[in-house]
């Protein structure tokens, strides 16, 4: 899976570079991402994930409006203390290990609210497919399941110009909603904090 994604990205970004020679319509950004579980998802995992990344490509149609694509991932994990889980006709007592690996593939629209100063706030809306790896263990007995779901993410952020280098520092908050509805988990909600750099090609 990961290998395929890398290849697709490689092909995509090299073709973008070819197309964007001599223009600054294209921005590539790379971000470190913290995922904070929200909503009902906290029943399954309520610990923040500090293992996340995302890559984004934005193509500016005008000074303020851009369309783009992104790929990101985040690995959520939580170990839960020994507890009894009841079901019809019995119960199981175990230490529980919950895992959830999320890989959102998005297409997005981005609008720069103001490009007057050095700091340019923007809003964006992304939607696409989320690849979800779900794993849960009761003691040494585990269950794993991979699937794709539809997901969306509104985003609020800002770009800060770093001189005339073509580089920007980027900080944003993205609210990921994955319409999952599997394995007793409804909508996977998490707040992604992205920190990274943008480069104008």
């Amino acid at each position: 899976m990961k290998r395929i994604v890398v290849i697709i990205l490689a092909v995509a970004s090299f073709s973008f570079i070819g197309k964007a020679q001599g223009s600054s319509d294209l921005q590539l950004s790379m971000n470190y991402n913290i995922g904070i579980p929200m909503g009902d998802f906290t029943d399954y995992i309520n610990q923040a994930s500090f293992r996340g990344m995302n890559l984004q490509v934005d193509y500016y149609l005008s000074d303020k409006l851009a369309i783009g694509a992104s790929i990101g991932w985040n690995g959520f994990y939580q170990k839960k203390a020994r507890e009894s889980y009841e079901f019809g006709g019995g119960a199981i007592n175990a230490v529980r290990y919950n895992y959830l690996y999320q890989l959102p593939l998005y297409l997005k629209v981005q609008y720069i609210i103001s490009d007057e100063g050095n700091i340019m706030p923007y809003v964006a809306l992304a939607a696409g497919g989320h690849y979800i790896e779900h794993e849960t263990y009761l003691g040494y007995v585990g269950f794993a399941d991979d699937s794709w779901s539809f997901g969306t993410a509104p985003e609020l952020g800002a770009l800060m110009m770093l001189g005339q280098s073509g580089w920007h520092f980027k900080l944003s908050a993205q609210y990921h909603l994955t319409f999952y509805n599997r394995n007793n988990i409804g909508t996977i909600q998490n707040l992604g904090i992205n920190m990274g750099f943008n480069y104008d090609f």
Binding site: K2, L9, W73, L138
Partner: peptide, 25 residues
């Protein structure tokens, strides 16, 4: 970065005792 993020989850130590499962039907 893409390739190096293979460890998807943090490592965790598990004691033998934590693997005990007690089921009642």
């Amino acid at each position: 970065l893409l390739i190096s993020s293979c460890a998807k989850y943090p490592a965790d130590s598990v004691t033998t005792e934590e693997n005990d499962i007690i089921g009642s039907l």
